[in-house]
């Protein structure tokens, strides 16, 4: 019985027949109403999918689409976002174009027109108004300069230049 009902519903969907009210029973009318409702939901879902697709996670962005991913590996391109507190827009840099920390920091200074200063293992970038940090592959925010360059460049997913007001909090957390 249930199977026959399901078949009947499927056939009705396939037919898309608009019968006269007098010819159909109440049960069929209600089924038709539910079909129309599901149709509307379907259209709404499609519209919503087209307008607002869910933003993919960072892992997908790195490897999306697969074709570009393989080509990207061949080209040795590694773009990461760079944001600075107070700046109206972000920048993107290719970490593969830099060989060491001084080159990277100089480029960041030129990009955002700020003075970052030199790194000191004991005090970090204290004395400067800006502190360069990066998000590693584990999602943790780290101070730029603590680890060897190769480890940093392979682990860095995103860069952020914090302002001096955030630096004391960063120092206390270290």
């Amino acid at each position: 019985m249930a199977y026959e009902k399901v078949n009947e519903l499927n056939l009705k969907d396939t037919e898309l027949c608009l019968g006269l009210p007098g010819r159909t029973e109440k049960i069929k009318e209600e089924q038709e109403v539910s079909c129309v409702k599901s149709n509307n939901k379907r259209l709404f879902e499609e519209t919503r999918d087209e307008e607002e697709s869910t933003p993919p996670t960072k892992t997908q962005i790195v490897g999306w689409p697969p074709v570009r991913s393989s080509r990207k590996n061949n080209n040795s391109v590694s773009y990461v976002k760079v944001s600075m507190d107070g700046a109206p827009y972000l920048r993107k840099i290719d970490l593969k174009t830099y060989k060491n920390y001084p080159e990277l920091l100089k480029a960041l200074e030129n990009m955002f027109k700020v003075m970052i200063g030199e790194y000191c293992e004991r005090e970090g970038y204290k004395g400067s108004g800006f502190v360069p940090t990066y998000e590693d592959k584990d999602g943790d925010w780290m101070l730029v300069g603590d680890v060897p360059w190769d480890m940093f460049s392979s682990s860095c997913k995103r860069l952020r230049i914090m302002k001096g007001s955030d630096a004391p909090a960063l120092d206390s957390s270290l």
Partner: peptide, 20 residues
Amino acid sequence: IAYEDMENDLLLAGDLTWKD
């Protein structure tokens, strides 16, 4: 000229290659 990406971040246009 700036642009928004899939993460709704606003970035300056010109840093990437044209295809990217």
